[in-house]
Structures are given as C-alpha cells and as structure tokens.
Computed example of a mutant assay.
Amino acid sequence: MDNESEERIETRAIHAGQQPDSETGAVMTPIYANSTYVQDGPGDHRGYEYSRTGNPTRTDLEANLASLESGAHGRVFSSGMAAINTVLNLCEAGDHVVTSNDVYGGTHRLFTQVFEQYDLSFDFVDMTDIDSVSDAMRPETELVWVETPTNPLMRVIDIAAMAEIAHEYDALCAVDNTFATPYLQRPLDHGADIVCHSLTKYLGGHSDVVGGALITDDAALDERIGFYQNSVGATADPFGCFLVLRGTKTLPVRMDRHCENAHILAAWLDDHSAVERVYYPGLDSHPSHQIAAAQMDDFGGMFSFELDATLEEAGSVVSNTDVFTLAESLGGVESLIEQPAAMTHQSIPREERIAAGLTDGLIRVSVGIEHVEDLQADLSRAIDAILQ
C-alpha cells in the first residue's frame, strides 16, 4: 500500500500489508495452505522455504498488525499465551520481572507455575502506584510487563511512566494491548518496546480463531523474537491468519459500537442499587479516568462490576442471562459474561486474589455489538432475579 504511514487507521485496517495477489488478482490475501516451497537451488529460495519459518498469509497479517500499532515489525503466534511465552524467552535464569497484581490469570499461571522453575522471579504490584513499581525494580530486572486496562479490574496503567522506569534499569517494557486494541491505544507511541495481543479477542473479533502477536519498532529485538518464534514453533496457521485479516478490516467500526454500548451499560450499572462498584475507565469516577483519556482514544468494550454477593450468588447471576453468553474469552461481536473467581482467574490462590481486589462477587463483561437496550434488559433480569 503506497503512502501507508500517511493513511488513517481505518484505511490501514483494510489495506496495510496487503496487495492484490500477483498471480490471480485476488483482492483478499489467499490462504497459502502449504508446508514447504520450491527452491531454485540448494538454499536458493524465493523468500519462503518452510511454513513454520514463514508463510505468505502470515506475512501479510504481520505487516497489517505492525502498521496498526505504528510499529515496524510484527510476529504472529498460535495463541496469545504463545506470544507472552516468547517475551519471557527473552529473559535468562536469574532475571527479574515486574508486573501487575491483577494481571490476567493465564499470564499469572505462566509466570509462577512455568517460568519460576527456570529461576525467573516476579513481583506483582499495583502498577497504578508508580512508586510501587519503582520500589520493586532491581538491578537484575529485565522486563516490566504491563496490561492496560487490566483484566479484570480495568485499572489503567501509565504506559509512558512504566517505560521510563523500565529503561532506567535497561529493562524492556512490554504492554498487553488486547483490551484496548490499536484502534484505541498504541503503546509504542508511549515508549513501550513490545506490544502483545491475543488475536483471539477484538482483532479477530468473531470468536472463531485463536492467535497471538508481538509488535516492535526495534529490528534487533524483532530478530530475537523471530528466532524464538521459529525455534519454538508456536506459529499461527494460514487459516487462522486469514480469519484475523478478515477481522482487522472491521475493527474500527466494531470498536466504535463496543465502546458506545459499554459506556451506556457501565453508567446504568453505576446507578443500580444492587451494584457495589463498576470498573470502567470511561466513568468520571474511575480513579484513572484522566490517564485513560490521555493515552486512549476511547475507553473500550470491557468492564467489570461488583455485587455484594457470595460466590454462588454471583455465579447464579452470570448463569441466568439470555443475550449475554456465559463463556470465557472476550472481544467478539457477541456479548459474553463471566465470573473471574470461578473462571478466568481461578488459578490465582484465593487469598492473593482477594488481596488484589478480585472478589467473589466480581463479574466481568465483554460488551458486544447487539442493541444496547436488549443487553440492559438482559442484565437487569439476571440481577433482579437473584438479588432483589
């Protein structure tokens, strides 16, 4: 795409990294469902030799995602966890990582149950408190891992501040940008070194693909990431890449509706008599609303709310919706609802979970693009049936 950097994100979402197929003129990138490629001589290939190392469908997606994040290099993986695992592979035994105390449960599990056995150490802190992050840093800190907004308490972390602290210690700053997407937030513009995505979520957008991605501006860092991508082999298949390319084309229009619906529902729940608290950065009452307004273009389609309820009562609420689907994951066109304590964050010990604010009555919502009045009526029925 000519003059790509001059195009706005809505245009790049559709065109970046892609040209009509040179052989057939096909507008959409074809699915190159092959494992190997002809060589004109030993080692003399035409850009591709083996699909774990490189595949044309994946190449187009990687370029598309890099453009959306205002980055120079993109790598795509078989899942978001495979992408996070690759970032941790950049560390060595004895290194130290600072991250959030309400990080996604799967990330917490990977850090503590997989990488701690390889002599990596982790500090989980409240990243909204910049002093807490600074106090946790050590000479051996290699990585500052940031989620913003966090999952599921929707805390907003100052990316520029985290990057500055990381760089003072010659550490990398990586940001999981899954909740915001590049349509709403671009961490590289705020000093981050690596951006991570679960492509399963908003970028795919239709709950029909699993994938992950890492984007960076640093060529040397991208080369290291690419080494692990190829060596470990957790690469995305061409069918999945095709689906994500289809998804990114509608990302801007979907995100506009996700944000609109989420704001209406969050404001309504904020006034609901049975709701103790709503966690949504788009509310003026959110502690980090001003930071969110400064580093995000809108506030996203995710929020959580807290009921004064037992684990069983909150479980009954999420089990009694009709329009909202009780399921893990997020970011699809359909609305999803879940209970972190019993689902996505169950792997975190209860004492640690409660201390981080992940109560038994906490409910997380991924707001889809259905009519907002149907969504509101569905939540109202489910809450009133159990708690009133």
Rank of each mutant, 00 (worst) to 15 (best):
F299N: 00
P238C: 12
L110Y: 03
S121K: 03
E313Y: 06
D123Q: 02
P238A: 08
D60T: 12
L153G: 13
Q376W: 14
L172D: 05
L143I: 05
T321L: 01
D378G: 07
E373K: 15
G205H: 15
D256L: 07
D193A: 02
G331F: 06
E313L: 11
L65K: 09
A213R: 04
V144M: 10
A356W: 04
L88F: 08
K249Q: 07
E92K: 11
L387T: 04
I9S: 05
T57Q: 02
S5H: 10
V103F: 13
I264M: 13
F299H: 09
A93C: 02
D44P: 00
T107S: 15
V372L: 14
D135I: 05
V333A: 05
R353Q: 04
Y169V: 09
D131Q: 11
A262T: 10
A266E: 01
E334N: 14
K249A: 11
Y183F: 14
T321F: 00
V275E: 10
A377H: 06
L265N: 05
F324T: 04
C196T: 09
L245I: 10
V98R: 07
Y279E: 06
Y279P: 01
S198N: 10
R186L: 04
E140V: 11
L269W: 06
Y169A: 15
E351Y: 06
D284F: 06
Q339W: 04
A342V: 15
A136D: 12
L269S: 09
D360A: 12
I159G: 01
T321V: 01
A342N: 13
E276C: 01
H197Y: 14
E49C: 00
I363S: 01
E142M: 13
M28H: 14
M137G: 05
E276F: 00
T200D: 12
N230V: 14
I369C: 12
C91K: 11
Q290W: 10
L143A: 03
A16L: 00
V27K: 15
D374V: 07
S67P: 02
S67T: 12
D237S: 14
M343V: 07
S304E: 07
R257Q: 09
Q117H: 15
Q295L: 02
L245V: 12
P252C: 08
T250D: 12
M81L: 06
V98Q: 08
